[in-house]
Amino acid sequence: MKKLIWIFALIVLTFTGDRLGGWVLKQQVEKSQFRYSRLYTQRAQADILLVGNSRGLIFYEPYIEEITGLKTFNLSYNGMSIDLMRNLVEDYFEKYDAPQRMIVDVTMCDRINDQLTSGFNTYSAYSERLQKLIFERGGNMGYGAQFSHLFRYNSEIFQRALFYLNKTDKDWLLDRVINKNMVAEAGNLEAYTIDLEPDSTDLEYLPVNLKAMIAVAQAKGTEVHLVINPYYPVFAKKIENLESFKTKIETFTGLQVKDYSSSILEEKGFGDYQHLNKYGARLYLDQLKKDGILP
C-alpha cells in the first residue's frame, strides 16, 4: 500500500509540476517581445506585413520604418514553410486591421518544415488553426503538447521568445560579413535548385498554400508584392531553375514576381550565400523603395 502511495505521489508531482511549469512559461511567452508573442497578444498592428523564411529577415524593420514612416511587422523565421506561414498570416488578418501591403519573398516556397511547425506548439493554445496544422503535419507532437504542457515549450521558438523577453526582435538580422572561406569556395559550389515540389505525394501543396495566403490578404484589400530576395552573386548563378521557379509561381498566383536575386553585388553586403547582412539589407531596401515595392 505504501508503495502504491509513492507511485501515486510521483504521478501527482510530475503532473502538477508539468502544469505549473507550463503556466510559468506561458506567462513569459506572453510578455515576450518576440514576433509571434506580439502576434498572439494584440501587439502587432502594422501597415506593412513582411513574409519569408530566414531570407525574409532581411526585411530589416527599423530601416523600413525609417524610410517609409510606416509601421511594419515581420512574420519571417528561419526555415519557415509556406503552409505554416499561411496559418500565421490568416491568424494575423483575423486579429488585426488589414495592412496596406504584404511583401512576400517567394523563395520560402521550397520546403515543408514539419519540425518547425511542431515547434509552434508554444503558440498552439492561441490558435485552433495552428493546432490543427500541428496535428496534421507534426504527427505525435500535437498529442505530446496536450499531454505535457512543458513539452509545448520544448522548441527553439520558445527559446527565442525567452531571448526576446525584454528586448525587441525587430533588429534580428545577420551582422557579419561573409567569411573568406565561403568567398573562396563559392565558385566550386555545386549547382543548386529551388525545389517547388519537395513533397512528392502532393506536388501542389506549396503553391496552393501560397495562393491561399495571398487570397486572404487580397480579400481584405491588402496590396500583395511577390519578390525574390538577393543571393550572393556567384551563388545566384548556381541556381539552375530560378527562372522556371519564378514562372511557376507567377502562373499559379497570377501576380508578377520581382526578381532581385542578383541585385546586390557588393561582397560586404552579405552574411553568407543566401543572406544579406545589415549593410546589404539597407542597400536592398533602398532599391525596393525606389521600385515602389515599399510605399
Binding site: G17, D18, G21, L150, F151
Partner: peptide, 9 residues
C-alpha cells in the same frame, strides 16, 4: 520534466 522540456522526439 527535463525529458519533456528538452527531449527531441
Amino acid at each position: 520534466w527535463l525529458i519533456a522540456f528538452f527531449g527531441t522526439f
